[in-house]
Nucleic acid binder design. Structure first.
Length: 463
RNA sequence: GGCUGGAUGGCAGAGUGGUUAUGCAGCGGACUGCAACUCCGUGGACGCCGGUUCGAUUCCGACUCCAGCCUCCA
């Protein structure tokens, strides 16, 4: 039985889909105008595992992850670059897909874009106008009138009075209430715009997600997710828009991921302390980066550091080492009543507890290592389980040799040269010239290549 | 100031009202020319103060500290 922590109720709830056997999930994607950073990676790897586990559990999942491709920052960046917003967003969309692929993320079923949902956006705004939840200011912009929505604050546990007390001063506008937010913004000259019943303009920040989730999943769906920094105001505003417009419930379960920290501070663009996915993938193996993302629970903060990334790589190396020297081409069928599978599921059923689930992977690795020398059949069965469970987390799907010989940076030292040095070293060993043998090993070690002398042969791997 | 969440062994990170998390690092042993890999064994922990309890790291309350949101943010 799957239990998920719901931000709405602030507690773990037994998950019950609206339609038995089916799950609809909408995850807020990125506003696209720059390279994606490690914080994005953390959130989307988390939802990737959630999606995989829902499917592994037998649910028929529809997974939506949007792209917000119109927004003030996009316009500003495109102007800086002297290019169109479409050129800018198309370029970074391609980069984002490459980065996400590198991290082993499965693709969402639909990846809607704000600019391809303008009709739906206008429809919702019109409904909100008709129902009296929205109004047009003197500047022509359309605003959502927050005090009109009684449940405002139910997700972020804020109340309007407190929010207004904390409101920063000096915001001059013709809003009726300081908490009101823009649904439709009138276009300034030379800004990209679409025609609407209220004039040429573009959508405000929050409305596109209400429109895209409705377009893809309908008024009422199972799971809505995103980074915890979106909980307020973005998700709160989505609820206000969608529930008011649709006159009914919106998402049942809200899932929020913890932020990535650098030196105990949130990684963010405004603090300029972020690492892009590209930068990090140049330093560490991509699968190790993914492993790192899953090594702590998705709701807790994750501290980015060289030490932690190296530890993740070493841990993953241990798992792959256990699979080495086994014939993985012909794996036996995994038995459904395996204790390890049961333990793994129990961990994942408890709000997707990946650290606990990964502990099961290490138990399997240890058992495989033991069984290798005593009971090869058992070792293979356990290896099949390890690979299957790894697959649920999106790891351990390459051959051990491929992982162990891969390097973090693209600049591999030459494999054939490594082979030559090993041959030379083995000649030295045969001659009992230990000094020369150790010299070669030290030299390779300095290049990040580790040698292991097995019976009859010497194998190598990169670390 | 308001609202959330957190504080676990050298590091990372789960979990539990009484019994081994797990990984890395350490220590002892086996294996090895020496290593590496692997196995066997092993030390080390629950921020602080009270309360509940036969017993609390785990429940309750206060305190201290840390982080997130309240402006753009994954």
């Amino acid at each position: 039985m799957l239990n998920i922590y719901n931000s709405l109720s602030q507690s773990k709830e037994t998950f019950k889909p609206i339609k038995p056997g089916k799950v609809s999930m909408y995850v807020c994607g990125i506003t696209i105008y720059d390279y994606s950073h490690i914080g994005h990676a953390r959130t989307f790897v988390s939802f990737d595992v959630i999606a995989r586990y829902l499917r592994y559990s037998g649910y028929d999942l529809t997974f939506i992850r949007n792209i917000t491709d119109i927004d003030d920052k996009i316009i500003a960046r495109a102007n800086e670059n002297k290019e169109s917003i479409h050129e800018l967003t198309a370029r970074f969309e391609k980069i984002m897909h490459e980065d996400f692929d590198s991290l082993g993320m499965i693709k969402p079923d639909i990846e809607p874009k704000a600019t391809e949902s303008i009709n739906e956006i206008i429809e919702i705004i019109q409904t909100l106008m008709d129902k009296g939840f929205a109004y047009q200011g003197e500047d022509g912009d359309i605003y959502y009138h927050v005090p009109k929505f009684e449940d405002y604050g139910k997700l972020s546990k804020q109340n309007l009075e407190a929010l207004q007390a904390g409101e920063r001063v000096g915001v001059a506008s013709d809003k009726k209430s300081p908490m009101d937010f823009v649904l439709w913004k009138m276009a300034k000259p030379e800004e990209p715009s679409w025609s609407s019943p209220w004039g040429e303009g573009r959508p405000g920040w929050h409305i596109e997600c209400s429109a895209m989730s409705k377009k893809c999943l309908g008024d009422h769906f199972d799971i809505h997710g995103g980074g915890s920094d979106l909980q307020f105001p973005h998700h709160e505003n989505e609820i206000a828009q969608s529930e008011a417009a649709n006159g009914c419930c919106f998402a049942n379960t809200w899932i929020h991921t913890g932020m990535v920290q650098v030196d105990k501070e949130k990684m963010s663009k405004s603090l300029n302390n972020f690492f892009t996915i590209r930068e990090v993938l140049a330093l560490y193996r991509s699968e190790s980066v993914r492993y790192f993302m899953l090594s702590s629970h998705y709701r807790s903060q994750l501290n980015y550091s060289e030490e932690n990334l190296k530890a993740a790589d070493a841990s993953l190396e241990r798992l792959y080492l256990s699979l080495r020297d086994l014939d993985l081409s012909n794996l036996p069928e995994v038995s459904t009543d395996s204790d390890y599978l049961a333990k793994f599921k129990q961990a994942m059923d408890d709000d997707f507890n990946t650290p606990e689930a990964m502990a099961v992977l290490f138990e399997l690795a240890k058992e495989i290592n033991r069984a290798k020398s005593t009971d090869l059949e058992r070792a293979l069965l356990l290896a099949a389980e390890l690979i299957e469970l790894g697959g649920v987390l999106g790891i351990l799907q390459q051959s051990p040799e491929a992982f162990l010989k891969s390097s973090s940076s693209g600049e591999d030292s030459d494999d054939s040269r490594i082979g030559q040095l090993i041959a030379e070293r083995n000649q030295a060993r045969a001659d009992k010239n230990w000094a020369r043998a150790d010299e070669i090993r030290d030299q390779l070690q300095a290049e990040g290549v580790v040698l292991e002398d097995k019976a009859g042969e010497t194998v190598w791997r990169r670390e």
